[in-house]
Nucleic acid binder design. Structure first.
Length: 496
RNA sequence: GCUCCCAUCGUCUAGAGGCCUAGGACACCAGAUUUUCAUUCUGGCGACACGAGUUCGAAUCUCGUUGGGAGUACCA
């Protein structure tokens, strides 16, 4: 039987780098074995899934060059490849009903509040947290009557109460063994009539002829349920293989907060798909000859599923950058030119209006806009200190403004545009000016410091490294909060 | 709490009982090339978590400890 594998991402939010990682492994495994690679969209959570998100997954996979043989937008003999469409076909309901008729699943009428209370009690008693199976014994006829009367219900699997579940994952040293009594009566069909992941995935993997389910380790715990479902539905289970989870630097599961996880971000940032793929491949797989730079074609030629490392690798952006540099410098001149154009164009239209009245030649844009493209600027210390004032004054000013903007940026409803920033800074000026009323020399110096024309120049130099720039608040707005705050800090260092 | 998984330099990894005084890559440090920077090249720093056991011999096998991670949803 020929190999068929799949990735089954859920279209919530941005396409995830973990999807690319698992996708790459599945893709290589399929290609290496002359099999098929399928993309299926798992959108059974009506509250979280969006079509835009699904589209972004298609686009990202294609961008990376992970071409799927079957999928929502390319079709195939096992469609539809979107679960919400399959729900409408009644596919999952049929299988859920079959389990109920067989006595392998049952109606449960617990309310969310009831379930919550159950959990709280178990937590308090240091008991394992799981459904207490209170509706397990309900008569089917009674259950059906209540359901027919409109009472909300879910369908739960009737997990075995004794015996042991054993499964050997080819990548793990020892077989997974777990007593059945520790396995929850998982909900299979939700009260909205839609299937949970567990039911939908098992049914679809079967219907789509999937032979190997290669997925992340986070699924290992639900493996018994999936095997059980296969068996009780009369399917031959695919082989399940669990690979390690991508990690943050602190070893926790990779997350948005601690790492860029959106594939869209990498693309926008200018990462080359070849570099990203190469990097991802290095996390967990290795070439027998130790080669670290290779194409997708080279990888799929030697790929060995059994060489995959299951310990979750830390996602090291620095190494990705290094690879990216290698690939970038090798680019054909035309390709490199278009990458540079892309990078410039990304900000060009937003920036151009700021320079319109300042330019004499088109080329003036190059040096005038430089601070907006650069990673950092290097203001001269002497330019940061206004005439008649000293370094401490300038530093104090930078510190106060930095703090104010930092606090503002942290606000949830903060709008980072020129009018708002103008307001924020002018409020600060008013506060400061009020405090320094008086006629001692020091008070006069401070009064001068907090005059807009003095202070604007200090900020301008700190932010752009130049004494001339577009209007200050347009500059701050374009720079964005991150660079603004960073550059205000760097300027303070210069004054030490 | 309960259940499960994992464990070689800071990070990604090679290593499937003697080839290991543990190899490579990123990062870091030093030097060379470069007017500068980057690239490139050379060198350096740096790890088998710990403890028992099996064995003539253990990074490699077993057990325990410790550490880390995941799951514990009518999310996937």
């Amino acid at each position: 039987m020929s190999v068929r594998v799949r990735i089954a991402p859920s279209p919530t939010g941005d396409p995830h780098v973990g999807t690319a990682y698992i996708g790459l492994i599945n893709y290589c495994f399929a290609k290496r074995n002359g099999g098929a690679f399928v993309l299926r969209i798992e959108d059974t959570d009506q509250t979280r899934c969006t079509p835009e998100s699904a589209q972004a997954i298609f686009d990202s996979m294609k961008w990376l060059g992970l071409r799927y043989d079957e999928g929502p937008d390319v079709g195939g003999p096992h469609g539809p490849y979107v679960q919400s469409e399959r729900v409408k076909l009644g596919i999952y309901r049929t299988y859920a009903d079959r389990l109920v008729e067989q006595g392998d699943a049952y109606y449960c009428f617990c309310t969310p509040a009831e379930l919550e209370a159950m959990k709280a009690r178990q937590r308090a008693a240091n008991q394992p947290i799981m459904y207490d199976r209170r509706h397990r014994g309900i008569e089917l006829s009674e259950a059906k009557a209540r359901a027919a009367a409109g009472e909300p219900y879910v369908i739960r699997m009737k997990a075995p109460l004794e015996g042991e579940f054993v499964y050997k994952d080819r990548l793990r040293k020892q077989a997974v063994a777990k007593p059945w009594k520790d396995i929850d009566d998982q909900v299979l069909l939700k009260s909205d009539g839609w299937p949970t992941y567990h039911l939908a995935a098992v049914v679809d993997d079967h219907l789509m002829g999937i032979t190997h389910v290669i997925r992340a380790e986070e699924w290992l715990n639900s493996l018994p349920k999936h095997i059980w479902l296969n068996e009780h539905l009369g399917f031959t289970p695919p082989e399940y293989v669990h690979v390690g989870l991508l990690r943050n630097a602190d070893k926790s599961k990779i997350s948005k907060r601690k790492n860029p996880t959106s594939l869209l971000w990498y693309r926008r940032q200018g990462f080359l798909p070849e570099a990203l793929l190469n990097f991802l491949a290095l996390l967990g797989h290795s070439f027998p000859d130790g080669r670290e730079k290779f194409t997708l074609a080279e990888l799929q030629a030697v790929f060995e599923l059994d060489r995959i490392n299951v310990a979750g690798p830390v996602f090291d952006l620095q190494k990705l950058r290094h690879l990216q540099g290698q690939y970038f410098r090798e680019l054909e001149p035309e390709k490199m030119l278009s990458e540079v154009h892309r990078a410039v164009d990304a900000r060009f239209s937003a920036l151009l209006p700021l320079f319109k009245e300042r330019m004499t030649f088109g080329g003036d844009f190059i040096w005038q806009a430089e601070p907006f493209y650069a990673d950092s600027v290097s203001p001269h210390a002497e330019d940061l200190v206004p005439k008649g004032l000293d370094r401490q004054h300038a530093r104090l000013l930078l510190e106060q403004v930095q703090l104010t903007l930092k606090n503002y940026a942290a606000l949830e409803q903060a709008v980072w545009d020129a009018p708002h920033l103008d307001g924020v800074v002018r409020t600060l000026i008013e506060e400061r000016s009020a405090i320094v009323e008086g006629d001692s020399p020091e008070k006069q110096a401070l009064a001068k410091l907090w005059q807009p024309k003095t202070l604007f120049m200090v900020l301008r130099v700190a932010l752009t490294g130049k004494r001339e720039s577009p209007p200050l608040f347009d500059t701050i707005a374009q720079l964005g909060s991150g660079k603004t705050i960073e550059r205000l800090g760097v300027a303070q260092q210069k004054l030490r």
